[in-house]
């Protein structure tokens, strides 16, 4: 796949002509990219670069800016609240990404079979993703309410553990993160299932037939055919999941914050910290420095992922 096909099919051209072909190719390629790139550059890239420049400044959003060098970054090193937020975010990501991927892939494979009611099941599993967050978070919190919520009542009936000793879910600092991870997986797995379903359609059926002839069982087929064929999809899903998990904000706010939009120590995430620093403390420079850390973190992961994509996807 990574073999430059054009070389195979074309007779060796003279040097000068080849150059102009390169240029022509580039023009064609860029004209394909341009409609998106221009909109993207103007409306996202420019403000974004400005925000990154801000990380070296002190700015309250209105008064003149002041250059402070690396002061914002050195402050990050000792800011315990920030460290906490960073750890929480990483913890959340580590929970959500694999959990969602497994659930989504499982669902997709299950609902790719020719079984009765699969269309209905697909639609149903997509429900949580399309529903408005305010409404489903309220539902979820209600179901998981510590002393009187149906989930704990049911657990109590099933296990006999007294209600007081059952997890207090969102209200319990030790369970809060788990609860929100569960919620996120539940809310988003339907969407990633759709991506996987789409990916599954691209799997070459002949490979299965060949594997059957070789006497492979279902597990071997899954491991040796489905998974490698799904590699680009998996790469995409994991990438988007990681990025979205690092950027998580809404879910935490609607799950935990109540009316005052405030999060506690165990549920404070990076973007919340950025938002608070920028808009409550009016420290846009410092907030940008935090965003920069997030950016570099994800960039690092992206590069690693890309390297491995080249290795495995080809």
């Amino acid at each position: 796949m990574m073999v430059p096909n054009s070389v195979v099919f074309e007779p060796k051209p003279r040097r000068k002509k080849r150059l102009s072909k390169n240029v022509r190719d580039a023009i064609v390629a860029y004209s394909f990219i341009a409609p998106n790139l221009i909109g993207f550059a103007v409306f996202t890239l420019v403000p974004l670069i400005f925000a990154l420049v801000l990380s070296f400044l002190k700015w309250d959003g209105a008064n003149p800016m002041e250059f402070v060098g690396l002061a914002n970054f050195s402050r990050l090193l000792t800011d315990k609240t920030f460290h906490r937020a960073l750890c929480n975010t990483i913890l959340y990501t580590a929970g959500v990404v694999p959990f969602t991927m497994v659930c989504a892939l499982g669902l997709a494979i299950m609902l790719n079979q020719k079984v009765l009611g699969r269309n209905l099941s697909r639609t149903i599993s997509f429900f949580p993703y399309v529903a408005s967050l305010v409404a489903v978070a309220a539902v979820w919190n209600f179901l998981f309410s510590p002393t009187k919520g149906p989930i704990n009542l049911m657990l109590n009936a099933l296990t006999g553990i007294p209600i007081e000793e059952l997890p207090r879910w969102a209200a319990d600092k030790n369970w809060a993160m788990f609860t929100v991870i569960l919620f996120s997986v539940w809310k988003n797995m339907g969407y990633y299932m759709v991506i996987y379903l789409a990916g599954l359609q691209g799997v070459n059926q002949e490979l299965y037939e060949a594997a059957s002839l070789d006497g492979a069982n279902s597990w071997q087929k899954f491991w040796n055919v489905t998974l490698p064929q799904l590699a680009p999809t998996t790469f995409f899903v994991s990438m988007i999941l990681i990025i979205n998990s690092f950027k998580v904000y809404d879910v935490f706010i609607t799950m935990f914050a109540g009316g005052d939009n405030q999060l506690s120590d165990t549920t404070r995430v990076l973007v919340y910290q950025i938002y608070n620093t920028a808009f409550r403390a009016l420290d846009f420079g410092y907030a940008s420095a935090m965003a920069m850390v997030l950016f570099l973190l994800v960039l690092g992961i992206t590069i690693i992922q890309f390297r491995s994509e080249k290795k495995f996807v080809a």
Partner: peptide, 21 residues
């Protein structure tokens, strides 16, 4: 001058105390 930031802390600690965390 810093009431916005103070309020954030007070709310967080209030939450932690009231939930027995």
């Amino acid at each position: 001058e810093k009431s916005a930031e103070i309020e954030v802390v007070l709310n967080e600690c209030h939450d932690a105390i009231m939930t027995n965390n």
